[in-house]
């Protein structure tokens, strides 16, 4: 399905305005898009982990959700929705629910990479028919910008300051998408808010793959990244152009890179202008930029190899031509 905005504009808006996300936050329009990726005869039940998107959409007595939504806690968006999905199966079997439902769980990187990792892993392993979307803004933003395991090396946060003794976060980010690929679920993808065609297609696929699916979406937080209010989308694009955040999908174990930059931008094009990386641009910390570049290059090469292997595998699996 190729995303067509004109057609899409006929779909009802399922995330009402009046939510309290910061002006220019990139996650809400990603959610708006996600909620439209169902067929007309399909309803959605969503769950969301504690974090910015939950807090801003459900300040009592207001809710931005026009479909059903449940927030239970920080670390259990996947487990909670797995219960709702199980309920659907049994209530449909017993004739008590007649409509078709799809299930969409969401969480920030803190609620997904870190505290909710176990709950996500469990739900994926059990095979619930649901899509989990991580909106990855590379930090615990709601509690005031702390490092998570998704925060890039060198980034300054309120728990990884750049001081005289420390240069910001000391570890590289966790490759959560790879962890999810290792679950051998039908569909895993990495996407970015700047490329909504690719994003929309992936969400549609994830919701309709007939099993558990996971999409990791880069969704910049201008507050945490210390960029302009209207620059979130642009910085997501730069991350992709620098191969820091490749767009790819893994369908039934086979890798496909969805976008290959014509000329890969140097990592500095993404880093510069972000306040959280400002301290990297002095001689003392320059080695961190080199490490980030090396990591991005290594990961990109790995991905190219995996895609090539997948092509081989697909060829080998295809029936011989008569």
């Amino acid at each position: 399905m190729a995303l067509n905005l004109k057609k899409l504009s006929h779909k009802p808006e399922m995330l009402a305005p009046g939510h309290r996300a910061c002006s220019g936050c990139t996650a809400p329009f990603m959610i708006r898009l996600a909620l439209k990726m169902v067929e007309d005869d399909e309803k959605l039940v969503t769950s969301i982990a504690t974090g910015c998107m939950e807090v801003v959409t459900t300040i009592y007595p207001f809710s931005a959700w026009k479909c059903s939504n449940i927030h239970c806690a920080f670390e259990n968006s996947a487990a909670t929705l797995s219960g709702a999905e199980a309920a659907y199966r049994v209530l449909a079997k017993r004739g008590k629910v007649k409509e078709k439902f799809k299930f969409l769980a969401m969480g920030g990187d803190g609620g997904t990479y870190d505290i909710g990792f176990q709950s996500l892993s469990g739900a994926m392993e059990r095979g619930h028919e649901m899509l989990y979307i991580c909106y990855d803004n590379e930090g615990y933003m709601n509690t005031g910008i702390q490092r998570s395991s998704a925060t890039p090396k060198g980034a300054e946060t309120n728990t990884s300051f750049a001081g005289t003794a420390k240069p910001g976060k000391e570890q590289h980010r966790k490759d959560l998408t790879a962890c999810l690929v290792a679950h051998d679920i039908p569909y895993v993808a990495q996407a970015s808010v700047h490329n909504i065609r690719d994003l929309g297609d992936k969400i549609y696929k994830g919701l309709h793959c007939g099993g558990p699916a996971f999409i990791n979406v880069l969704a910049p937080c201008h507050r945490g990244w210390r960029i302009g209010v209207d620059q979130g989308v642009e910085y997501a694009r730069l991350a992709v152009e620098a191969n820091f955040w490749p767009l790819f999908e893994v369908e039934k174990g086979l890798y496909k890179i969805n976008y290959k930059p014509k000329t890969q931008l140097p990592i500095t094009d993404w880093l510069k202008g972000q306040g959280r990386f400002k301290h990297l641009f002095n001689d003392k910390n320059k080695h961190i930029i080199d490490e980030l570049q090396a990591e991005a290059d290594k990961k990109w090469k790995q991905l190219l190899r995996r895609e090539a292997e997948s092509l081989e595998d697909a060829k080998a699996a295809a029936p011989a031509q008569a």
Binding site: T80, S82, G83, A84, A87, Y88
Partner: peptide
């Protein structure tokens, strides 16, 4: 307990 909460909230 999370799944039970999800199931119960779903109407089960």
């Amino acid at each position: 307990m999370s799944a039970t909460v999800g199931a119960s909230a779903a109407g089960a």
